[in-house]
Amino acid sequence: MSDGWVPEIKPTDDLSAADRRRLVESMRPEDAEPVPELSEVDIPDELRERIESAMQKYPEIRSASLPALWAVQRHYGWCTPEGIRQAAAVMGVTPGYLESVATFYDLFHTSPVGRHRVLVCHNLACWLRGAEDVLDAFCEAAGVDPDEADHIGTSSEDGAVYLRGFECLGACDIAPMASIDEHYYGPLTPEEARTAVEQLRSDARPIPDKALAGRETAGGPEPEPDPRVKEGEA
């Protein structure tokens, strides 16, 4: 008799045997996804041009997979399966390969997302300066679940804002900060977060005075030049 230790056995999932059988029976050899035949895929010209020009920049075609996925995301708003298939057909790789790459990187969305993408940094430096409150404020304003936004990202119901708690965005000098539609803003207060969401809802440029692009170097004004550092001429 065993000593009381019992292996962990869980019931199988909710997929019934009949469902599973149906699933198997529905599988046809042609459902597999090898490299798509280019002639069978309808690709928007603009997308195709972008991918092809990216392919020319590198010694090996596969290097273009990131630029190609960026192009797909630009075109469709997220990496749609159809878009991935189109890119795969142009590049001559399997769609599975591109999906594998796409799911590896945080910035590629493989499910639909809101119009404006807000990534709120909640890594150490920002967290130390109150990033959690900022994220909560964003979530509250957008009406999404902070926990979901924190872990996997989620979009507001009206489809205007996609919110995600993000690991370090490399702007600890303006902590707590957020990246809104690929532009950096900070330091933010919860109040500003709420304002930003409202502005995004109306597709206005959010909190312009908080944009990183307009800021001076954080290290303060130019100190007395070190005499050893010479002027421009060699």
Binding site: I9, K10, P11, T12, D13, D14, L15, S16, A17, A18
Partner: peptide, 13 residues
């Protein structure tokens, strides 16, 4: 044999 979740005989698969 494999369990049918709809008509389960034992706890596991």
């Amino acid at each position: 044999a494999e369990n049918d979740p709809d008509d389960r005989v034992s706890a596991g698969e």
